[in-house]
Nucleic acid binder design. Structure first.
Lengths: 181, 181
DNA sequence: GGTTGCATGTAAATGGTTACATGATTGT
DNA sequence: ACAATCATGTAACCATTTACATGCAACC
């Protein structure tokens, strides 16, 4: 998904500024399964405006640059729905964390522990964040389904790490002992 | 992780050609959590050779271009271990599948069904593939841990889809009925 | 006769991140 | 004082994908 489509997607849930779109990828509805930086969002929004996919209204503010609120046009909504017709390819995951653990036998046991601790904390935090979002009231059907999916996967990930960290560290320590002989 | 480091990682498990490195990302040890295309692998390998991180031996073959087998040098191994010292950022996931399901209420129920079927099949296939790899004998500690992680997550994903697809489709169908009134 | 697997590589195009530039306000 | 939040935007740089170029062998 390119950033233009991602912006359209966020705007389909209501008007927003570039800044708010970024937040939607960090804390909002799209958190954890899409991202984009300002350097990609602002140009994307400008192009969408050129193409008539969005309209913008400037709200003057003091001390800050004008806030530009973007709103989807019918053409923009159509374009978004058109992209929903693609056949999705396989999900792409790039995990530096798993890359490091792939080489666990070359990492000091303490480091493995710290790495896993941090990752469990991350998953738990994300899970708690989803609870908060749930508490804020019901959301759209698809949105709820995706959140449930994220929850299931994060829970499984945290559980796996908790259940298997001790054995991993034991095995690595044992190997280090043998290598020292 | 850039492609250069990824190549180093594959080569740490034994010598390989560019073609074989690609396969390692598709079916081999790095399957499902890292990818790279030929257009990235071949130039990366050439640069690694320039930098003295790998050596290459050409094996003449008939009917095919010479096969270039790359092998890690001590400097390459050191460079790989040096990158293991990074602090891993959050995992990056880009899922067109979840993007589509986020807008489930705008998708025909049949399509939702087909989409979920295909994804369950994918997860089950990946799980079966991991069983095969397990049957091929024991692997390194970290490698096994990562595979177990992937297994746990894929299993949870497949389970969630199976457990919640019916409700999702009911809810979308119901909404369509209401909208038709 | 067409697709898949083997095998390498280049170049154009894409798409994005990172860093920079600016600046007020609020909290620590 | 310093960091974070709010707020927009540009430009240089980076990495990677996609398409192209080549070609044999095996299978269906």
């Amino acid at each position: 998904m390119d950033v233009k489509t991602l912006c359209l997607a966020v705007l389909s849930k209501g008007e927003a500024s570039g800044y708010e779109i970024k937040k939607a990828f960090e804390e909002g509805p799209f958190a954890h399964f899409q991202t984009a930086s300002f350097g990609a969002i602002y140009p994307a929004l400008a192009r969408l405006a050129d193409e008539g996919m969005v309209t913008l209204t400037e709200h003057a503010q003091d001390g800050k640059p004008d806030k530009k609120m973007y709103r989807l046009t019918p053409a923009g909504r159509e374009a978004l729905f058109a992209t929903l017709e693609i056949t999705p390819g396989p999900d792409q995951i790039r995990s530096d964390f798993l890359f490091l653990l792939f080489f666990a036998e070359h990492l000091p046991p303490r480091r493995i522990n710290a790495l896993i601790d941090a990752r469990i904390a991350f998953f738990k935090g994300a899970l708690a964040h989803m609870d908060e979002l749930d508490a804020q009231g019901p959301c759209d059907i698809g949105h709820g389904f995706v959140r449930g999916f994220g929850r299931a996967v994060y829970q499984a990930a945290a559980d796996y790490l908790e259940a298997n960290r001790a054995e991993l560290i034991n095995r690595v320590s044992e190997q280090n002992r043998n290598a020292a002989d």
